[in-house]
Write a protein that binds this DNA or RNA. Sequence first.
DNA 1: GCATTCAATACTACATCGGTATACAATTCT
DNA 2: AGAATTGTATACCGATGTAGTATTGAATGC
Lengths: 152, 152
Amino acid sequence: MLKVGRLADYGILILHHLGRMRPARLAMESIAEITHVPLPTVRKVMKFLVDAELVISKRGPNGGYQLARPPAQVSLAEAIAAVEGPLALTECSSADGQCELHDQCDLAGRWPGVNAIVLRVLERTSLADLDRFGRHEPHVPPPLRDLMAPIR
Amino acid sequence: MLKVGRLADYGILILHHLGRMRPARLAMESIAEITHVPLPTVRKVMKFLVDAELVISKRGPNGGYQLARPPAQVSLAEAIAAVEGPLALTECSSADGQCELHDQCDLAGRWPGVNAIVLRVLERTSLADLDRFGRHEPHVPPPLRDLMAPIR
DNA sequence: GCATTCAATACTACATCGGTATACAATTCT
DNA sequence: AGAATTGTATACCGATGTAGTATTGAATGC
Ligand code: SF4
Ligand code: SF4
């Protein structure tokens, strides 16, 4: 598993679309139509994206949403964090949360390292990079190429 | 977020302990005591680990569990997959599941690439590597060093 | 002022997950 | 054989979180 929630998934999907339209503004209803995500759900997601300052909103006639930065400067890590909160594989991964075992656990201090690595991967993959992955024919973005090298 | 479930967390914790004891056998009750994980929960986790053939079990007096392979040959990816199923960031990440948007979604074919990359990271981090991460002083395991290089 | 469009809140149905209880099967030792 | 030990299997429960919905309110622009 280790899956990203549906809402975050939608968030990325929407951000991606906004990226293609940039710098045009897109109304919430249009977003729902294009992405086929139910409107009320879009509403909820947009709130997160605005709060995270990933998109700029404007009200009134001809209002809508607009990607705040070029797609190449928006990482998947940011997008996911915007919707689901900061990446934390375990409770003790980042600013130690509230794991009751924390004191007696051998692995307590060791997770942040792992966490940092996968975070780094997501940070280095931008919305623009997503396009490069192509449909069913993965093209690894430059910053990650060294890691993937032994794969294909 | 993007967190690994508590059960998988426990699983790794247990595997790690078994690794230190190897090749000794450890009874379920002992595992519960040492790791401070509630016994019934240990019971549930062990089933997954046995099914995945990560540990070998033996019944009867002086029975218990034993790590099937050297800790350096057990990856976090395997451990997590054993408990939570195969890694799939989104529904369409691996063998396309059942996302109703799949046909009309621009990103449908693009996730497997991302998925493969983070999977690769978890595959390259073994139980033995966990130790090297040290407490609060991360030491990146060799196979990932190139990726982390620009960080510190 | 009025149409348009986003913002905020509250709520519900549902799934998943962590955790528990209980009955059962296999192994060893005497 | 029989008792003690240890893992296996199943079924269940309650808390938590998630996806989705509804309603009402506030800002913008003409
Ligand atoms: S302290 Fe141990 S048990 Fe608690 S979250 Fe960290 S690794 Fe898991
Ligand atoms: S098809 Fe689109 S919406 Fe469905 S899981 Fe894949 S990315 Fe998410």
